[in-house]
């Protein structure tokens, strides 16, 4: 039986067609918002493996904090964390206007839900939108209404909807995608996973391959995690897996494993950003699951029905399929020229 399973492979998939050459300049991801709204905190949690309470140590961001975040092979996020104090804001909008707002791929704008002067926040947002309209009219915008944990639970929905409709009114021709977030739960992972999802090139290919892999190994669910941030980049869910009542499971998994990585790094004495484990097997009564180190920049999680043979053959098959995914992850190695910049959505 296992041999039969192994003979099936994902090779019958057509390989990715080369797209436009990647000579263009890397697009920026701008992270903006009022001072103290939590921009640097969320950046540290997502990309630098901080836990929520460690963000208390962070000081104010002075001017622009530039960082290149390596993500999925040769996709580098050119992340601009812009200090939010008024003096800096004026500076961005005046002297550095072109420098900051040209060639922007994505603008992530953070609103503090606790802000006492929401009208002023809107005004700043309006002028940012103006500048963006002028230099990068094709950029996509994400609105994070942050610190939701500070609002009484039964009022959250109402206040959030209220804020979002006001923000939409000020967004000109852009169509911002709003999220309610908090660093204290998984909502932050959900928002960022969706943002990242839109940034990854040749995602269609990856998703297609994941689907065929999932079908072959008879999985309930297959998830592809980015290595350093442990965000779900891509996923495939079978008809059965889709009946799972836990709808926020991807974010929760990210959260669980990220928290565990804190512990393992303390135990092994390695930096948090390093690879913390190579394989995790869980065999329980109703399901079995494994998470393996997959390509250079990803981890693969597979949820299967119980059964020893099924589990082992699936594990072997995933190792075979690895070759196919390696190319999709880092096409530069092959010399092909797939778009590696943050693409417009």
């Amino acid at each position: 039986m296992e041999d039969a399973m192994k003979n099936l492979s994902v090779e019958d998939e057509p390989t990715a067609s080369p797209s436009e050459p990647r000579k263009q300049k890397k697009k920026k991801v701008l992270l903006m918002g009022k001072s103290g709204s939590g921009k640097s905190s969320m950046r540290s949690i997502i990309f630098s493996n901080y836990v929520a309470k460690e963000t208390r140590r962070l000081g104010a961001t002075i001017d622009v904090d530039l960082s290149h975040v390596k993500f999925l092979g040769n996709l580098t996020l050119n992340l601009w964390d812009c200090g939010g104090q008024d003096a800096f804001m004026e500076n961005y909008l005046a002297q550095q206007r072109q420098h900051v707002f040209s060639n922007v791929g994505v603008l992530i704008y953070v609103f503090d839900i606790e802000s006492r002067d929401f009208d002023r926040d809107l005004l700043t947002y309006r002028s940012i939108i103006g500048a963006l309209q002028q230099f990068s009219p094709t950029a996509s915008i994400y609105i994070l209404v942050h610190k939701m944990d500070l609002v009484v639970p039964n009022q959250r929905e109402e206040i959030y909807n209220d804020r979002v409709s006001l923000i939409r009114g000020k967004s000109d021709t852009f169509n911002p995608i709003p999220f309610a977030t908090s660093i204290w739960d998984q909502s932050l992972y959900k928002a960022w996973a969706e943002i990242i999802h839109d940034l990854v090139p040749n995602l269609d290919q990856i998703e297609k391959h994941l689907g065929s892999l999932g079908k072959i190994i008879q999985a309930e669910e297959v998830l592809l995690f980015e290595r350093s941030s442990f965000l779900v980049v891509s996923s495939w869910t079978s008809a059965i897996g889709a009946q799972n009542p836990t709808t926020d499971r991807f974010e929760r998994l990210s959260n669980i494993i990220k928290n565990f990585k804190q512990g393992t790094s303390k135990f092994t004495g390695t930096p948090k950003s390093a690879e913390q484990f190579v394989i995790l097997e869980i065999k329980l009564k109703v399901f079995s699951m494994f998470v393996i180190k997959f390509t250079t920049n990803t981890y693969l999680a597979v949820v299967l029905p119980p059964g020893e043979e099924r589990f082992n053959s699936a594990l072997e098959n995933c190792k075979i399929a690895l070759k196919e995914f390696e190319d999709l992850d880092s096409p530069a190695k092959k010399g092909s020229d797939r778009g590696a910049t943050s693409s417009e959505t």
Binding site: E220, Q243, K266, I282
Partner: peptide, 26 residues
Amino acid sequence: MPSYEICSDYIDVIVDVSEIYGWARP
């Protein structure tokens, strides 16, 4: 302490994961 902590964190991971995927299949 470190080995105790890692074991206890590990239990947490498994309990949390089983909470997510341990639903009753049809």
